[in-house]
Design a binder for these strands. Structure first.
Lengths: 225, 225
DNA sequence: GCATTTATTTGCGTATGCATTAATGAATGC
DNA sequence: GCATTCATTAATGCATACGCAAATAAATGC
């Protein structure tokens, strides 16, 4: 996830960041309801900026404002995950294809290469959280290189949701060694400018990832995260 | 475009609708700046709901809030259009593929079929606006049939932007007869459950549409809409 | 005891006012 | 004449207040 500059000077921006944090950390659990005034108290500000933040997060699909019921933290069902992964698959594959068409040199692709190495390192240390972070960096950089700002922003939002699900499933899944090979092969296709190959490889990669996570969610009856 | 239920009871919702309308109609021209208080006066309400509406529209990419400069109606450049069409192409193609996999019967596909007929009628009457409206209905229904609500909502937002550009270019372009054939062939693929074909045909359709509109924008030096 | 109506509470939508801070212009020094 | 500093203006971001409508509780009728 983006660092957000780390200094959001307005209360409204701060509220967005803090609420996101609280959702990801489970402090605000999925399905729970919270009054605007309660959240305002909790964040030490008035309802106005909280309300604005909630509106923003609603547009990003993290919560929902239900008049008189409070803001509801939206649970993520396996069906939601399926939808999200399908969108990610399409848009990231496009990004991979476009990135491959841009004749990037090794310096441009450094971030991708580094992310892959970091994933290898993390795996060898069994540090799944570090692996997940590097994986995020890889995917974020990929869409950046794709050059379509709308794709990048949509993917960024959806990735937030994936993170929520992954926080739960990360430690149930087999070590993602296959995933690393996938990343390498995508990078290679981008480096050598093979647009169709990049697209297809990334597409396959994402579809597999989808299957793994969906199976896990279903297997463990994790119908709502 | 969706009818929006026609009864947004809150001022906030009303503001969203009215501002959208004003943007599409050119009442608020691209690139222009407007103070929150000015818009509030114009809509006959206080700044609060206007501000909330502006926040929402900002998240949809129609405008931008620049502190102390007012809300700026975002212009749509050919580059923006290119980005938008690429996203639409990917996501609608996915929708077409998924729709084809759902074994819809003729009743389910009625809306699509009707939209196509309406487009034919409109063309025969040289009624381009009616054609555009029916085209909108076709694409909206397609993503609905695809069954991925996130795809539907993203496409809906992007379609808003396309409408803006099309309002300008609609009367410069050749009659979209090819487009109608495309629609028919996509529908046929969906009806017969040919997922890959549906995807590929729709993809080709959208890519062609992109090329046409981009060329028009560039040819007429319409760098900002 | 159950249903229906009435009263009460409570959270939201909106209006309003104020303080902060960026932008504009004036004034001063060089 | 130009740049720099300071004063002024003005729009925002936010706090606060209030009325309304929905939800809940109480009360009444059957």
């Amino acid at each position: 996830m983006k660092d957000q500059g780390a200094k959001p000077k307005s209360n409204s921006q701060r509220a967005i960041g803090q609420l996101r944090q609280m959702i990801f950390s489970g402090d605000l659990s999925a399905g729970s309801d919270h009054l605007e005034s309660e959240l305002a108290d909790r964040l030490g500000m008035s309802r106005t900026p909280v309300r604005e933040a909630a509106l923003t997060l609603e547009s990003q699909g993290l919560l929902e404002l239900r008049p008189r019921k409070g803001v509801r933290i939206l649970p993520v069902s396996p069906e939601d995950m399926s939808e999200i992964y399908d969108v990610l698959t399409e848009l990231e594959s496009l990004a991979a294809e476009q990135a491959a068409g841009m004749a990037y040199d090794d310096a441009d692709l450094m971030v991708l290469a580094t992310a892959i190495e970091d994933m290898d390192d993390a795996l060898s240390r069994d540090d799944l959280q570090a692996w997940a972070d590097a994986d995020d960096r890889f995917h974020a950089e990929l869409v950046r290189l794709g050059g379509n700002s709308r794709v990048a922003s949509i993917v960024g939002m959806m990735a937030d949701q994936v993170r929520r699900a992954r926080a739960t499933t990360l430690f149930m899944r087999p070590l993602p060694t296959q995933s690393n090979e996938d990343h390498r092969s995508v990078l290679e296709a981008i480096r050598t400018g093979q647009q169709d190959t990049a697209r297809l490889r990334h597409r396959a990669h994402r579809q597999q990832a989808k299957q793994i996570i969906i199976d896990l969610l279903k297997k463990h009856r994790l119908s709502r995260l």
